[in-house]
Design a protein around this nucleic acid. Sequence first.
DNA 1: CTGAAAGCGCTTACAG
DNA 2: CTGAAAGCGCTTACAG
Lengths: 329, 329
Amino acid sequence: MATIKEVAAKTGLSPTTVSRVINNHPYVDPKKRKLVLTAMEELGYVPNSSARRLRGQRTNTIAVIISRIVNPFFGHLVDAMEKIAAERGYQLILCDSRLEKERELQQLELLKTKQVDGIILASLQNRWKDIEPYTRFGPIISCNEYDSAADMPMIVCDQEYGGYIGTKHLIDRGHKNIAYAGGTDRIELTRDRFAGFKRAMMEAGIPIVDDYLFPSFYGIEDGKNIFHRMYAMENRPTAIFAGGDEVAAGVIQEAKRFHCRVPDDLAVVGFDNQPLADLIDPGITTIDQPTKLMGTRAMEMMVDMIRHNREVTYKKELLPLQLIIREST
Amino acid sequence: MATIKEVAAKTGLSPTTVSRVINNHPYVDPKKRKLVLTAMEELGYVPNSSARRLRGQRTNTIAVIISRIVNPFFGHLVDAMEKIAAERGYQLILCDSRLEKERELQQLELLKTKQVDGIILASLQNRWKDIEPYTRFGPIISCNEYDSAADMPMIVCDQEYGGYIGTKHLIDRGHKNIAYAGGTDRIELTRDRFAGFKRAMMEAGIPIVDDYLFPSFYGIEDGKNIFHRMYAMENRPTAIFAGGDEVAAGVIQEAKRFHCRVPDDLAVVGFDNQPLADLIDPGITTIDQPTKLMGTRAMEMMVDMIRHNREVTYKKELLPLQLIIREST
DNA sequence: CTGAAAGCGCTTACAG
DNA sequence: CTGAAAGCGCTTACAG
């Protein structure tokens, strides 16, 4: 692999001048510039990025941490981020925390070891106090998930409102026995959604039944399990607000298998508005998250922070959430 | 950020010794080792990876190029790869070619500029002659897609067989008017699948109707379009072998909307066996690809090649494909 | 078991 | 407009 020295030798110029050509500096004799360019071409020269990183103290790489890449929601989020990153000349390192705290912390080390210029947290396994120490080493922002105790920029959706409109919709349809599959309390996002659920229920004067509340779940299989737990109840819920479209899809599929009609016997509301929600039968009423917009904004902000050395301070950017009504309610 | 020099200064030892501690070299006085460890701890020292990269000429980073991350097939493939990479201490750079040749070539440059130690091509936009020059700079292997003209290792499935069993299944169900949504000829994988289709048709003595052949398609919307093109025909096909489950899902959804019964009026076979295939109604008969196994094997092989400086030579590892029968046929 | 020195391949003040 | 020199932060022969 040719180095800058070899290019210099071949042209009879100094490495300094070659470097200036590479970096499009002004003040290089046009003839010499051309000479260098030809030599680079002939030698197949390409600058060594490790050397540039070490010298320049930048990596042009950004890490994004998600919790489960097989969740299509994250697929779309990452897609939007990758697009902006590529446009702006940044590489994307994909980190999957697999919902584990330790993995997330290890991935945050990338910033310390100077392997990335910044990190976007699209999921959050650790508390702010454990994440905060890393902010000293470069910009960290959150996108999708958030922690209001955190002193970092966040691009998020109004989850309380999402929880509210989904629940209100079920109430408006005449339901009172409403189950809720909410995710763990550990995550603020799910707490806020649940707060929206509670607000809607309270406004309507409907008591919340503990047995109808299901903890943290993520995939199709979890949806199936939840259905069975509801099905086994004496007093079955007539509706469920699931934590995501995959969970909702699992509920619906199993309901159909057990001849439980959706929405007549069981109404189902999902979350995310994934393509899946429109594909299965009946289509899933769900809360649309502006996934693409979130990813785009987060990456734009990250690049901006890296480029302008912007200070990392609290800033919450709220994006709109919207009820999409289909046949499952 | 503390450097190795500061650790050395603090301990009164040389950077050499500190380096040896960092890298777990033998022959370091246990007391001094402990001394260094404490100093590193106190200073919050972490080795700068750019310096290590430059010095060591390795990056511990692997790029994977896919063509469309929102395709759940790639989501699962990347998931399996990320798992192995993380286990082995490698970072994963995600590159989405978005089906564009130029982007893929630019992503291959990562190897030249020493930003990655190796590249896994999970999709292939360029011909071998355009990819080959990059092999000089590090290991490149393909996974999923392939090019038999290529002199590189490939972890792939027997697509011809996949095309064959899917088609044979439709023929066994009594179909003669079978449409095929095949992808472009540019890609060998799709050519092979199509060859399997043709073999099955020929064996059964069924002529292939040009109007029933649809070119390259990938998503749900494409499936919908294909349905409409078939629906508009005078002599409608009674079955279709779609290029992927998403396409199949689009066909099925639109068929239902137009009261075309699946499988009675139109039988549908997909490809990939994505979770989606089991979720929609009717479930999609499809060809199961061992996605996880492919990703795992590819990453294992890549790490092995990087570690042992294995020569990059042709080697085709064929994984099994399997027909999954559901209600769409 | 330990350290001084060289060098990985760049870029950037500095001097001219 | 150009070049010599220093230095980014490591690691690895080499010598002891």
